[in-house]
Design a protein around this nucleic acid. Structure first.
Length: 419
RNA sequence: GGACAGGUGGGUGAGCGGUUGAAACCGCCGGUCUCGAAAACCGGUAUGCCCGCAAGGGCAUCGAGGGUUCGAAUCCCUCCCUGUCCGCCA
């Protein structure tokens, strides 16, 4: 949630920051929000004064009523009139507040100042193989580990079926990542619900603006999670965390469900864009002052996965106009896939500053006795499976059509070669 | 799905319709005592919004919304949630 106080105090800066996202409709939205905010404050001041009057009167009336067993009719009438006026103003105020909040939920997080205008490669790791070899779907077909037609039969396109060693590869990857993050990186593993309430989706920023992208159950108004970020970040909604326990991190494996509403026709082949996929997600909570460091740490944790899988990758800073709705700064980890000749986004590592914390009301008390403050939330894929599997198959494919399994993964897959 | 019970501050848990933001206890912070600690004792400990440079002041909040009333944590209605039992069931 945008900080209305900040918008009020320095509207020019907030507007300038948001303008970098390149969404021209925001100007008008902010105009409306500022106007409503002004109205709200005027009304509130007026109401507070009337209520103060009523409170004073009620205190005095209590004594009179007790002494005389009732209130003089004239007094009662005057009080009633005051009450009616208050009620009327209150309903007006409530309407303004409802509208204001509804609009404010559509304002994205302002990018951090250091976020560039153009995609910027920050660093890269490993030596990308020359473009060539087979694309992953051909490799997978030959190995008999992926069945797209049958997935389509069950659920439509974008619902892959992993078979045999493919299913085992996925399971091995999940276990490998969970073990790495819990044992080496200190994350607490959670297995969250996959269906969540509407307000939970609002908390992390998927709703209200992107309802079309989510799968929703009609009868219960629950949403299939598009990422574990949603349930895991909201784990602490409406809580005041003990600041001494921060920073803290959770890791969760979940399937993810995305309608990919705007992406029809893109990356339709293979595993690059699907409606259901597995992902291991890292979520961190920290003090505001700590989030820049935490973001780097977090990104490093995701990178470790790719390094251990021996997948060359690069780290890209997303430009302001490509940031997700709630993100203030994002690094994409892109693994090289020689078969399709593309850098594949296998992880997105973002800091959300206090934006999600405001929406989900997640605070911390830095030390006992101190004032609560909003935490900062961050998350990164650690990592997403389908594209990682694609990069893995294409990178480690052998001339004979087999695929070698990187040593770190062998214990989890139970073989050093898919053939 | 059916029948009950209940939702109060960081936690547990009291609260005749009228100085109740709300007892008590726990926790936490500070102090006394101690070589130090524990215990004991004393004091302090909610959040949000608004005005103000500040000191300070005002308003709101007892699940949410609406209603009754001069006045609601307290009465009424609706909704949400939680728990227990029954039914169904991996």
């Amino acid at each position: 949630m945008i900080d209305l106080k900040l918008l009020r105090a320095s509207p020019a800066q907030v507007r300038a920051a948001l303008a970098r996202r390149g969404d021209s409709s925001l100007t008008r939205l902010l105009d409306e929000i500022e106007a409503l905010d002004m109205k709200r404050r005027t009304l509130t001041a007026q109401l507070d004064q009337l209520k103060a009057e009523r409170n004073d009167a009620a205190r005095a009336d209590a004594l009179v009523a007790k002494a005389q067993g009732g209130l003089p009719e004239a007094t009662a009438v005057a009080r009633r009139k005051l009450g009616e006026r208050i009620t009327a103003l209150e309903s007006e105020l409530r309407q303004i507040e409802t509208t204001l909040e509804a609009k404010a939920l559509f304002v994205p997080n302002p990018p951090l100042p250091e976020v560039p205008e153009e995609p910027t490669i920050l660093r890269s790791w490993g030596t990308p193989a020359a473009k060539g070899g087979k694309p992953h779907w051909e490799i997978a077909e030959r190995l008999g580990i992926l069945d797209l037609p049958r997935g389509a039969k069950l659920s439509g396109s974008g619902f892959p079926v992993l078979v045999g060693a493919g299913a085992r590869l996925a399971r091995g990857l999940i276990n490998f990542m969970l073990e790495l993050h819990t044992r080496e990186h200190g994350y607490v593993e959670v297995e969250p619900p996959l269906l969540v309430r509407r307000e939970v989706m609002i908390g992390t920023g998927q709703l209200p603006k992107f309802e079309d992208d989510a799968y929703r159950t009609a009868t219960d108004d629950l949403f299939l999670v598009p990422t574990a970020e949603v349930p895991v970040t909201n784990l602490h909604r409406d809580e005041i965390l003990d600041g001494r326990t921060l920073p803290m991190g959770y890791v969760a494996y979940t399937p993810c469900f995305r309608r990919e509403a705007g992406a029809a026709g893109k990356d339709t082949r293979g595993l690059l864009r699907v409606h259901q996929f597995d992902k291991v997600e890292l979520v961190r909570f920290c003090r505001a002052s700590d989030s820049p460091v935490q973001h780097e740490t977090l990104t490093g944790h995701a990178e470790t996965v790719l390094q251990q899988l021996e997948l060359p990758y690069r780290v890209v800073v997303l430009p302001a106009n490509d940031l997700g709705f709630a993100g203030a700064k994002t690094y994409d980890l892109e693994a090289w896939a020689p078969g399709v000749g593309q850098w594949l986004e296998v992880s997105s590592s973002s800091t959300f500053t206090d934006y999600q914390a405001r929406r989900a009301n997640i605070r911390c008390r830095p030390r006992p006795g101190e004032k609560p403050e909003f935490v900062h939330t961050l998350n990164a894929s650690g990592v997403a499976l389908p594209r990682t599997i694609a990069a893995l198959l294409e990178t480690h494919q052998q001339p004979d059509g087999s695929v070698t399994i990187p040593p770190a993964l062998v214990p989890y897959v139970g073989t050093d070669r898919l053939a």
